[in-house]
Design a protein around this nucleic acid. Structure first.
Length: 276
DNA sequence: CCTATCACCTGCAGGC
DNA sequence: TGCCTGCAGGTGATAG
């Protein structure tokens, strides 16, 4: 699930539901989820920490704790559940459990175990950490300008889809939204675009429009079966091309096709979006 | 520096 | 039913 709008939805839901409990204990059942520091230090340092603020950069969740910052990347399938400690649920895919001082637990669920957690002491320059050192400007950063996009992309090589997916340049766009943004631009994802000022202005508008609408709809839920905490979006109802193979293009009624660009499943209208 | 490929994991859909 | 292959919204390490 998790691209920028889904992660934003998780942030908003967590801050509403969970508020500010203190972690009384932590249980790590799959060590590889903990990316930095090593598991023992992670556990030691997080016990006693209180949740203060919820935020994100790109697809990374940032939990500001009293004396540290917990950073979480959900990767493909990660999700949180916030439940009473007594509530029993299918344990098989719960890999990290935070016991809280209000009788609840924050449970990290991840079928593929791809997600990662990081913990850094208060005062750390997060942009230099293993978690965030390769993460660029957030795609919804209000200060992001067309000029910034031009500066970031103009000297880079590759098709537009590949560049928009590069998190070290602009962060937060994944495989769903890149297809939607390309459709808005009437550009085939495989195109090697020239990043003129005019194009970058259009790109900024398209990015903002797609991501803003997706956030407003609570993100996109495609493969996720249940509505986990914060992730039961409705944007799938508004997708123009992604996952719309065989359906009619909303603009010209041509049948949407599925293809591959740089190994990623890619949906386009072959009439509105001409390949190079 | 760059691009391409693999590795990390599990579950599910489709073909035979 | 069962086996096999390929696929899935992501990213980091490694090879060339």
């Amino acid at each position: 699930m998790p691209e920028l709008p889904e992660v934003e939805t998780v942030v908003r839901t967590l801050e509403l539901q969970m508020q500010h409990p203190t972690i009384t204990d932590v249980h790590v059942r799959w060590d590889n989820i903990i990316a930095d520091p090593e598991v023992s230090a992670f556990c030691e340092q997080i016990i006693g920490q209180q949740f203060l603020f919820y935020d994100r950069i790109g697809k990374y969740l940032l939990f500001t704790l009293s004396d540290a910052t917990l950073i979480v990347h959900l990767r493909m399938e990660g999700k949180f559940y916030y439940e009473d400690a007594s509530f029993h649920q299918d344990n098989k895919h719960i890999h990290v459990v935070f016991d809280l001082d209000n009788g609840k637990q924050l449970r990290y669920h991840d079928v593929r175990k791809f997600g990662k957690m990081y913990l850094y002491p208060k005062g750390t320059n997060l942009r230099t950490t293993k978690a965030l050192r390769n993460v660029g400007i957030d795609a919804m950063d209000p200060s992001l300008s067309a000029r910034d996009l031009q500066r970031v992309y103009e000297k880079k090589h590759g098709c537009i889809k590949q560049l928009l997916l590069d998190q070290s340049l602009i962060a937060g766009i994944g495989n769903i939204y890149v297809d939607e943004i390309c459709f808005r631009l009437r550009v085939h994802p495989n195109t090697h675009v020239v990043f003129t000022q005019a194009f970058c202005e259009d790109l900024l508008v398209a990015m903002r429009a797609v991501l803003t609408k997706a956030i407003a709809e609570g993100g996109t839920t495609i493969r996720s079966y249940t509505s986990s905490l914060g992730v039961s979006g409705r944007f799938q109802l508004f997708l123009d091309v992604h996952m719309q193979e065989g359906k009619a293009c909303p603009l010209c009624q041509t049948t949407i096709i599925k293809t591959k660009v740089k190994g990623r499943g890619t949906y386009v209208c072959p009439h509105c979006q001409k390949d190079d």
